[in-house]
Protein backbone atom coordinates (compact mmCIF):
# COMPACT_ATOMS: atom_id res chain seq x y z
CA UNK A 1 0.00 0.00 0.00
CA UNK A 2 1.99 2.97 -1.26
CA UNK A 3 0.73 6.31 -2.51
CA UNK A 4 2.56 6.18 -5.85
CA UNK A 5 2.48 2.48 -6.79
CA UNK A 6 2.23 2.44 -10.59
CA UNK A 7 -0.83 0.83 -12.22
CA UNK A 8 -1.57 0.05 -15.89
CA UNK A 9 -2.82 3.10 -17.79
CA UNK A 10 -5.56 0.86 -19.21
CA UNK A 11 -7.00 0.49 -15.70
CA UNK A 12 -7.16 4.25 -15.30
CA UNK A 13 -8.71 4.62 -18.80
CA UNK A 14 -11.44 2.08 -18.04
CA UNK A 15 -12.16 3.62 -14.61
CA UNK A 16 -12.35 7.07 -16.20
CA UNK A 17 -14.90 5.85 -18.77
CA UNK A 18 -16.96 4.20 -16.01
CA UNK A 19 -16.94 7.35 -13.85
CA UNK A 20 -17.83 9.73 -16.69
CA UNK A 21 -20.55 7.41 -18.05
CA UNK A 22 -22.08 7.29 -14.58
CA UNK A 23 -22.61 11.07 -14.63
CA UNK A 24 -25.51 10.93 -17.15
CA UNK A 25 -26.97 7.93 -15.27
CA UNK A 26 -26.79 9.98 -12.07
CA UNK A 27 -28.37 13.02 -13.74
CA UNK A 28 -31.21 11.08 -15.37
CA UNK A 29 -31.89 8.21 -12.95
CA UNK A 30 -30.19 7.88 -9.57
CA UNK A 31 -30.42 11.52 -8.46
CA UNK A 32 -32.92 12.86 -10.99
CA UNK A 33 -34.53 14.89 -8.17
CA UNK A 34 -31.72 17.49 -8.43
CA UNK A 35 -33.12 18.80 -11.72
CA UNK A 36 -36.52 19.18 -10.03
CA UNK A 37 -35.05 22.01 -7.94
CA UNK A 38 -35.45 24.14 -11.09
CA UNK A 39 -39.03 24.99 -10.03
CA UNK A 40 -38.32 25.56 -6.32
CA UNK A 41 -38.35 29.29 -5.41
CA UNK A 42 -35.05 30.95 -4.48
CA UNK A 43 -36.09 31.71 -0.89
CA UNK A 44 -35.91 27.98 -0.12
CA UNK A 45 -32.25 27.89 -1.31
CA UNK A 46 -29.89 27.79 1.70
CA UNK A 47 -26.43 27.72 0.07
CA UNK A 48 -23.73 25.47 1.53
CA UNK A 49 -20.49 27.08 2.73
CA UNK A 50 -19.01 26.29 -0.70
CA UNK A 51 -21.84 28.16 -2.41
CA UNK A 52 -21.47 31.19 -0.11
CA UNK A 53 -17.67 31.45 -0.32
CA UNK A 54 -17.32 31.25 -4.10
CA UNK A 55 -20.09 32.84 -4.23
CA UNK A 56 -22.37 30.83 -6.49
CA UNK A 57 -25.62 32.34 -7.79
CA UNK A 58 -29.06 31.35 -6.45
CA UNK A 59 -30.28 28.64 -8.85
CA UNK A 60 -32.97 29.67 -11.30
CA UNK A 61 -34.83 27.56 -13.84
CA UNK A 62 -32.36 28.59 -16.58
CA UNK A 63 -29.22 28.02 -14.47
CA UNK A 64 -30.34 24.57 -13.28
CA UNK A 65 -31.34 23.37 -16.73
CA UNK A 66 -28.18 24.91 -18.25
CA UNK A 67 -25.80 23.13 -15.83
CA UNK A 68 -27.75 19.90 -16.38
CA UNK A 69 -27.33 20.10 -20.18
CA UNK A 70 -23.66 21.16 -20.07
CA UNK A 71 -22.80 18.36 -17.64
CA UNK A 72 -24.63 15.79 -19.75
CA UNK A 73 -22.70 16.70 -22.92
CA UNK A 74 -19.29 17.21 -21.25
CA UNK A 75 -19.41 13.90 -19.37
CA UNK A 76 -20.38 11.81 -22.41
CA UNK A 77 -17.55 13.32 -24.50
CA UNK A 78 -15.11 12.95 -21.58
CA UNK A 79 -16.01 9.24 -21.35
CA UNK A 80 -14.32 8.69 -24.75
CA UNK A 81 -10.99 9.80 -23.27
CA UNK A 82 -10.71 12.89 -25.50
CA UNK A 83 -9.05 16.03 -24.05
CA UNK A 84 -8.84 14.41 -20.60
CA UNK A 85 -7.46 17.42 -18.72
CA UNK A 86 -9.79 20.05 -20.20
CA UNK A 87 -12.98 17.99 -20.26
CA UNK A 88 -12.19 16.32 -16.95
CA UNK A 89 -11.77 19.68 -15.24
CA UNK A 90 -15.02 20.94 -16.81
CA UNK A 91 -16.95 17.87 -15.64
CA UNK A 92 -15.53 18.21 -12.10
CA UNK A 93 -16.44 21.90 -11.78
CA UNK A 94 -19.91 21.45 -13.31
CA UNK A 95 -20.61 18.45 -11.07
CA UNK A 96 -19.48 20.38 -7.98
CA UNK A 97 -21.94 23.19 -8.80
CA UNK A 98 -24.59 20.49 -9.47
CA UNK A 99 -23.98 19.17 -5.95
CA UNK A 100 -24.39 22.68 -4.50
CA UNK A 101 -27.76 22.87 -6.30
CA UNK A 102 -28.58 19.40 -4.97
CA UNK A 103 -27.65 19.86 -1.32
CA UNK A 104 -28.64 23.48 -0.61
CA UNK A 105 -32.35 22.94 0.07
CA UNK A 106 -32.23 21.47 3.57
CA UNK A 107 -30.72 18.01 3.10
CA UNK A 108 -27.10 17.00 2.52
CA UNK A 109 -26.39 13.48 1.26
CA UNK A 110 -23.20 11.58 2.11
CA UNK A 111 -23.07 8.99 -0.64
CA UNK A 112 -20.50 10.50 -3.03
CA UNK A 113 -17.31 11.72 -1.38
CA UNK A 114 -15.33 9.03 -3.22
CA UNK A 115 -17.01 9.91 -6.51
CA UNK A 116 -16.15 13.61 -6.10
CA UNK A 117 -12.52 12.73 -5.34
CA UNK A 118 -12.44 10.53 -8.46
CA UNK A 119 -13.74 13.44 -10.58
CA UNK A 120 -11.16 15.76 -8.99
CA UNK A 121 -8.11 13.53 -9.56
CA UNK A 122 -8.90 12.01 -12.98
CA UNK A 123 -7.90 15.15 -14.95
CA UNK A 124 -4.39 15.01 -13.40
CA UNK A 125 -3.42 11.85 -15.32
CA UNK A 126 -3.66 13.02 -18.93
CA UNK A 127 -3.79 10.60 -21.84
CA UNK A 128 -4.53 6.95 -21.10
CA UNK A 129 -5.68 4.38 -23.65
CA UNK A 130 -8.02 1.46 -23.02
CA UNK A 131 -6.03 -1.76 -22.72
CA UNK A 132 -2.64 -0.04 -22.35
CA UNK A 133 -0.56 -2.09 -19.92
CA UNK A 134 2.14 0.59 -19.55
CA UNK A 135 2.39 1.30 -15.85
CA UNK A 136 2.04 4.86 -14.58
CA UNK A 137 2.63 6.44 -11.18
CA UNK A 138 0.26 9.33 -12.00
CA UNK A 139 -2.53 6.81 -12.69
CA UNK A 140 -1.57 4.95 -9.51
CA UNK A 141 -1.97 8.06 -7.37
CA UNK A 142 -5.35 8.94 -8.91
CA UNK A 143 -6.75 5.47 -8.17
CA UNK A 144 -5.11 5.36 -4.72
CA UNK A 145 -6.59 8.77 -3.77
CA UNK A 146 -10.05 7.51 -4.80
CA UNK A 147 -9.55 4.34 -2.73
CA UNK A 148 -8.61 6.47 0.29
CA UNK A 149 -11.80 8.50 -0.14
CA UNK A 150 -13.93 5.33 -0.40
CA UNK A 151 -12.45 3.84 2.76
CA UNK A 152 -12.60 7.21 4.57
CA UNK A 153 -16.35 7.28 3.89
CA UNK A 154 -16.83 4.09 5.92
CA UNK A 155 -14.33 4.88 8.67
CA UNK A 156 -15.48 8.44 9.31
CA UNK A 157 -19.15 7.39 9.07
CA UNK A 158 -18.56 5.26 12.18
CA UNK A 159 -16.82 8.20 13.83
CA UNK A 160 -19.78 10.48 13.00
CA UNK A 161 -22.18 7.95 14.55
CA UNK A 162 -20.20 8.08 17.79
CA UNK A 163 -20.00 11.90 17.64
CA UNK A 164 -23.70 12.55 16.91
CA UNK A 165 -25.36 9.45 18.25
CA UNK A 166 -22.95 8.46 21.02
CA UNK A 167 -22.42 4.89 22.17
CA UNK A 168 -26.20 4.65 22.54
CA UNK A 169 -26.36 4.53 18.74
CA UNK A 170 -25.40 0.87 18.93
CA UNK A 171 -28.48 -0.10 20.95
CA UNK A 172 -30.88 2.56 19.63
CA UNK A 173 -33.71 2.32 17.11
CA UNK A 174 -31.96 3.95 14.14
CA UNK A 175 -32.44 0.98 11.80
CA UNK A 176 -36.03 0.43 13.02
CA UNK A 177 -36.71 4.05 12.14
CA UNK A 178 -35.04 3.64 8.72
CA UNK A 179 -37.11 0.56 7.86
CA UNK A 180 -40.37 2.15 9.11
CA UNK A 181 -39.71 5.18 6.92
CA UNK A 182 -38.22 3.54 3.83
CA UNK A 183 -38.73 -0.19 4.18
CA UNK A 184 -39.52 -2.57 1.30
CA UNK A 185 -41.39 -5.88 1.12
CA UNK A 186 -37.98 -7.51 1.65
CA UNK A 187 -37.29 -5.73 4.93
CA UNK A 188 -40.60 -4.74 6.56
CA UNK A 189 -40.71 -7.97 8.60
CA UNK A 190 -37.48 -7.18 10.48
CA UNK A 191 -39.06 -4.37 12.56
CA UNK A 192 -40.69 -7.13 14.60
CA UNK A 193 -37.20 -8.36 15.59
CA UNK A 194 -35.51 -5.29 17.18
CA UNK A 195 -32.72 -7.51 18.57
CA UNK A 196 -31.70 -8.43 15.03
CA UNK A 197 -31.56 -4.77 14.01
CA UNK A 198 -29.53 -3.83 17.10
CA UNK A 199 -27.12 -6.67 16.28
CA UNK A 200 -26.80 -5.32 12.78
CA UNK A 201 -26.00 -1.86 14.19
CA UNK A 202 -23.03 -3.39 16.09
CA UNK A 203 -21.95 -5.13 12.89
CA UNK A 204 -22.10 -1.89 10.86
CA UNK A 205 -19.93 0.10 13.30
CA UNK A 206 -17.45 -2.78 13.63
CA UNK A 207 -16.97 -3.16 9.88
CA UNK A 208 -16.79 0.61 9.32
CA UNK A 209 -14.11 1.05 11.99
CA UNK A 210 -12.03 -1.80 10.57
CA UNK A 211 -12.50 -0.79 6.92
CA UNK A 212 -8.99 0.78 6.55
CA UNK A 213 -7.62 -2.78 6.70
CA UNK A 214 -8.85 -3.18 3.10
CA UNK A 215 -6.04 -0.87 1.94
CA UNK A 216 -3.36 -3.20 3.36
CA UNK A 217 -4.76 -6.59 2.32
CA UNK A 218 -3.00 -8.83 -0.21
CA UNK A 219 -4.56 -8.57 -3.68
CA UNK A 220 -6.76 -11.68 -3.54
CA UNK A 221 -8.18 -10.88 -0.10
CA UNK A 222 -8.64 -7.25 -1.04
CA UNK A 223 -10.79 -8.29 -4.03
CA UNK A 224 -12.89 -10.52 -1.74
CA UNK A 225 -13.36 -7.68 0.74
CA UNK A 226 -14.49 -5.33 -2.03
CA UNK A 227 -16.95 -8.00 -3.19
CA UNK A 228 -18.33 -8.20 0.35
CA UNK A 229 -18.74 -4.41 0.44
CA UNK A 230 -20.69 -4.48 -2.84
CA UNK A 231 -22.90 -7.20 -1.31
CA UNK A 232 -23.50 -4.96 1.74
CA UNK A 233 -24.69 -2.11 -0.50
CA UNK A 234 -26.94 -4.47 -2.48
CA UNK A 235 -28.54 -5.60 0.78
CA UNK A 236 -28.95 -1.99 1.98
CA UNK A 237 -30.67 -1.15 -1.29
CA UNK A 238 -33.03 -4.12 -0.99
CA UNK A 239 -33.88 -3.17 2.61
CA UNK A 240 -34.24 0.62 2.55
CA UNK A 241 -33.80 1.58 -1.16
CA UNK A 242 -30.71 3.71 -0.48
CA UNK A 243 -28.16 2.82 -3.12
CA UNK A 244 -24.93 4.74 -2.40
CA UNK A 245 -24.40 4.16 -6.12
CA UNK A 246 -21.85 6.98 -6.71
CA UNK A 247 -19.80 5.53 -3.84
CA UNK A 248 -20.05 2.06 -5.44
CA UNK A 249 -18.77 3.47 -8.75
CA UNK A 250 -15.78 5.05 -6.96
CA UNK A 251 -15.09 1.72 -5.24
CA UNK A 252 -14.37 0.21 -8.70
CA UNK A 253 -10.97 1.96 -8.31
CA UNK A 254 -9.96 -1.24 -6.45
CA UNK A 255 -10.76 -3.54 -9.40
CA UNK A 256 -8.45 -4.71 -12.25
CA UNK A 257 -10.58 -2.88 -14.81
CA UNK A 258 -7.90 -3.06 -17.55
CA UNK A 259 -9.14 -6.63 -18.13
CA UNK A 260 -12.63 -5.38 -19.00
CA UNK A 261 -12.48 -4.77 -22.78
CA UNK A 262 -16.03 -4.65 -24.19
CA UNK A 263 -14.96 -3.26 -27.59
CA UNK A 264 -12.25 -5.92 -28.02
CA UNK A 265 -14.68 -8.67 -27.00
CA UNK A 266 -17.22 -7.34 -29.48
CA UNK A 267 -14.74 -7.29 -32.38
CA UNK A 268 -13.53 -10.82 -31.52
CA UNK A 269 -17.13 -12.00 -31.40
CA UNK A 270 -17.73 -10.46 -34.83
CA UNK A 271 -14.53 -11.99 -36.26
CA UNK A 272 -15.53 -15.42 -34.95
CA UNK A 273 -18.96 -15.19 -36.55
CA UNK A 274 -18.87 -17.71 -39.48
CA UNK A 275 -21.19 -15.74 -41.76
CA UNK A 276 -21.15 -12.05 -40.90
CA UNK A 277 -23.82 -10.11 -42.81
CA UNK A 278 -21.21 -7.75 -44.35
CA UNK A 279 -19.27 -10.69 -45.86
CA UNK A 280 -22.42 -12.27 -47.22
CA UNK A 281 -23.14 -9.20 -49.34
CA UNK A 282 -19.76 -9.14 -51.15
Amino acid sequence: MRLFDAVPLGRLAAFRTLVYLFVPIDLLLTTNWVLQHKDVPGDLYLPLLLGRVLPLPTPTYALTVGIFAALLVASVVAATGRAPRLLGTAVFLLYLEWMVIAMSYGKVDHDRFGFLVALAVLPTVGRARWGDLTRSEAAGWALRATQFAVVATYFFAAWAKLRFGGLDWLTGATLTRAVLRRGTFLSDWVVDYPGLLVGFQFFIVAFELTSPVVLFLAYRWQQRAIGALYAFHLMTYAAITISFLPHCVAMASFLPLEKVRPLVWLSRYRAADPAPPAAART
Binding site: L48, F156, F164, G165, D168, T171, L175, A178
Partner: peptide, 24 residues
Protein backbone atom coordinates in the same frame (compact mmCIF):
# COMPACT_ATOMS: atom_id res chain seq x y z
CA UNK B 1 -23.29 19.34 6.81
CA UNK B 2 -22.70 22.93 5.69
CA UNK B 3 -19.00 22.09 5.09
CA UNK B 4 -19.83 19.74 2.17
CA UNK B 5 -17.95 17.84 0.79
CA UNK B 6 -15.73 17.74 3.89
CA UNK B 7 -18.52 17.68 6.48
CA UNK B 8 -19.06 14.66 8.74
CA UNK B 9 -20.44 11.50 7.08
CA UNK B 10 -23.48 11.54 9.31
CA UNK B 11 -25.87 9.33 7.38
CA UNK B 12 -28.07 7.59 9.96
CA UNK B 13 -25.79 8.87 12.72
CA UNK B 14 -28.40 10.08 15.20
CA UNK B 15 -29.59 7.82 17.99
CA UNK B 16 -33.28 7.02 18.19
CA UNK B 17 -34.75 5.97 21.51
CA UNK B 18 -35.78 2.32 21.27
CA UNK B 19 -39.30 3.11 22.55
CA UNK B 20 -39.89 6.71 21.42
CA UNK B 21 -42.37 7.08 18.54
CA UNK B 22 -40.85 7.21 15.04
CA UNK B 23 -41.85 10.38 13.19
CA UNK B 24 -42.58 10.44 9.47
Amino acid sequence: DDDFPFGPFRMYSTTDDISAPVAS
